[in-house]
């Protein structure tokens, strides 16, 4: 686990790291919604290029790591694009073989879908690579008034992930040692699900309950006015970030209209 975290240390901390994490989330989430609802191909492509610039230049990671992270993006670009290319609607048929059909419209739609999936990937990775999850929840509490009981529950539950994955591994080994055979078909899927989930959930629920009781006993006052261990605030970088993002998105939009 530790090795995984070490992998995610950037080569240099760019200005994106200093932006308030909650503000960054809101802005990036707005980008995702714009990407989702947009139906124009030129705008989708110019957005993908803009987010690509953010990802490759401003995330602060070495090119080798960025290329490694690009592999799933390329795969999802191809798989979403190919489905649309071969099974998409279209009148001007260019090639057909049984149910598979490529038409001019389906090429357009495939490119649209592919650029959207690239945009999603770039925005998502840029966000995840440049924030610290704990600070993100602290900023959500302080800048966006997320009730503290939600934020602390998330932080506590995220802290327990290593324990959950370890338990899953133990369960897998235990089943292997006992040489458990599962049936075929849906029955087998159920048996598999049950044999993994029941012990995992029973244990996690007990643990979560104990932690909640302990937190309440230690006077974590949920809902009352409180101080924070990590104070987060807005700084000058946030203003710059907001301005740069609005300007670049609008120029991407304008470029797509006046090519």
């Amino acid at each position: 686990m530790q090795r995984v975290f070490n992998w995610f240390t950037p080569k240099r901390e760019t200005w994106l790291f200093r932006v308030n994490p909650a503000l960054k989330f809101i802005v990036f989430f707005a980008f995702l919604i714009i990407t989702l609802v947009n139906q124009s191909l030129p705008f989708a492509i110019s957005q993908a290029i803009l987010y690509g610039i953010l990802f490759y230049i401003f995330s602060g990671y070495s090119l080798k790591k960025l290329l490694l992270l690009s592999i799933p993006l390329v795969i999802s670009f191809l798989s979403t694009g190919l489905t649309m290319l071969l099974f998409g609607k279209g009148e001007t048929v260019l090639w057909q073989w049984g149910l598979l059909k490529i038409s001019e419209e389906s090429i357009q739609h495939a490119l649209l879908l592919g650029s959207k999936s690239l945009s999603f990937g770039f925005v998502g990775f840029t966000f995840i690579l440049t924030i610290q999850p704990v600070l993100f929840f602290y900023a959500m509490m302080q800048q966006f008034r997320l009730p503290s009981k939600y934020a602390y529950s998330f932080i506590a539950a995220f802290r327990l992930i290593p324990a959950v994955t370890e338990e899953l591994q133990i369960r897998r080994n235990a089943l292997k040692v006992r040489n458990i055979q599962f049936s075929k078909g849906f029955r087998g899927i159920y048996e598999r699900l049950q044999s993994y989930t029941v012990p995992l959930f029973a244990q996690s629920i007990r643990r979560a309950q104990r932690i909640a009781v302990a937190m309440e006993a230690k006077q974590y006052q949920m809902g009352a006015a409180r101080t924070y261990y990590y104070p987060t605030r807005y700084t000058g970088v946030d203003m710059v970030f907001l301005l740069v993002m609005i300007c670049s998105l609008s120029s991407a939009f304008l470029l797509s209209i006046y090519r």
Binding site: K149, V164, L200, F201, I205, R207, A208
Partner: peptide, 20 residues
Amino acid sequence: FTDLLITIMIGVVFGVLMKF
């Protein structure tokens, strides 16, 4: 608060399961 933490824990465990 207990219910909330357990609910979020269930979500997180599912997240791990979904990964696998």
